[in-house]
């Protein structure tokens, strides 16, 4: 594999300019995410795996973005980096104008708590806790007091139409309901981005549609949504699609152009 830095294709000039401008310092506040030359390598028993080989990406506030790519393309690693669960070996990452690529573990935990709302494929709810308590968790770590916490958690659950299920445990809920609890949990601390990793991977198509409608309405309310998926019909809901291949951005298209490409069978 070539180690040359490949000029990453960016969907629009605005994005390219954002990334270039960021080189000198913090980017414009309008840009929720700006990454420049993100590299992430793993040492897998002596063999170096280059999961990300220099990703440039800029995402504006209120965007609804899908990150696609075949398995091994680096999309999970990118999601971990964007979600501040992982730090890049090289390159820079600004989240909301703050450089997070060189933060300490505890600072990253704070960023995850305040800025990121995760939605996982396997829901990742605490099995023995009620829906309400699961939704409360981010607020617990944010240091919000009990009464306020309960109120906000209830509100978040109502937002995903689960106001009547607050005292149910995950095993008393359907897959779709569990994922909606997870979405409520992701939203409860008003994060800058909702970061979903294969959110419909464990759901049947009807439930998947239901969850996608939740994302749709959140996006239309102005919530920034980033969704990692390998399913084109799920990605089709997003307004912008970034395709990764071999640890690099292969294409970054606005939805209209992407749909065109889909029709030609290009992805």
């Amino acid at each position: 594999m070539s180690q040359d830095i490949i000029e990453a294709p960016l969907g629009a000039t605005a994005e390219r300019q954002a990334v270039v401008r960021a080189t000198g310092g913090a980017p414009d506040k309008d840009w929720v995410i700006v990454t420049r030359g993100i590299k992430r390598e793993y040492d897998m028993g002596g063999e170096i795996v280059r999961a990300l080989r220099g990703v440039d990406l800029a995402i504006q506030r209120n965007e609804y973005v899908a990150i696609m790519g075949p398995s091994g393309s680096g999309k999970s690693t990118l999601m971990n980096v964007i979600g501040c669960l992982d730090t890049p070996n090289d390159g820079e990452y600004w989240l909301n104008g703050t450089r997070v690529s060189s933060m300490s573990e505890d600072e990253l935990a704070r960023v995850r708590n305040k800025e990121i709302g995760f939605v996982f494929q396997t829901f990742n709810l605490l099995p023995r806790a009620t829906a309400l308590h699961n939704v409360e968790l981010p607020l617990v770590y944010a240091g919000v007091s009990g009464v306020e916490r309960k109120r906000r958690a209830r509100e978040a659950l109502e937002r995903v139409q689960l106001g009547s299920r607050v005292d149910h445990r995950p095993n008393e809920l359907s897959g779709g309901q569990r994922q909606r609890v997870a979405i409520a949990r992701a939203l409860v601390n008003n994060p800058s981005i909702l970061l979903a990793d294969e959110p419909t991977g464990n759901l049947d198509s009807t439930t998947s549609e239901e969850i996608m409608r939740v994302f749709e309405s959140l996006a239309s309310e102005g919530q920034t949504v980033i969704m990692v998926t390998h399913e084109p019909d799920i990605a089709a809901h997003a307004r912008r699609v970034v395709v990764l291949r071999d640890g690099l951005v292969a294409s970054d298209e606005r939805q209209s152009a992407f749909m065109e490409q889909l029709r030609r069978g290009g992805v």
């Binding site: 505890d106 935990a109 995850r112 708590n113 995760f118 990742n124 605490l126 968790l137 770590y141």
Partner: peptide
Amino acid sequence: TREIGIRKSLGARRRD
């Protein structure tokens, strides 16, 4: 372990 992962992803620090 998974619970710990979930808690960390939601913002739990080491000391939490």
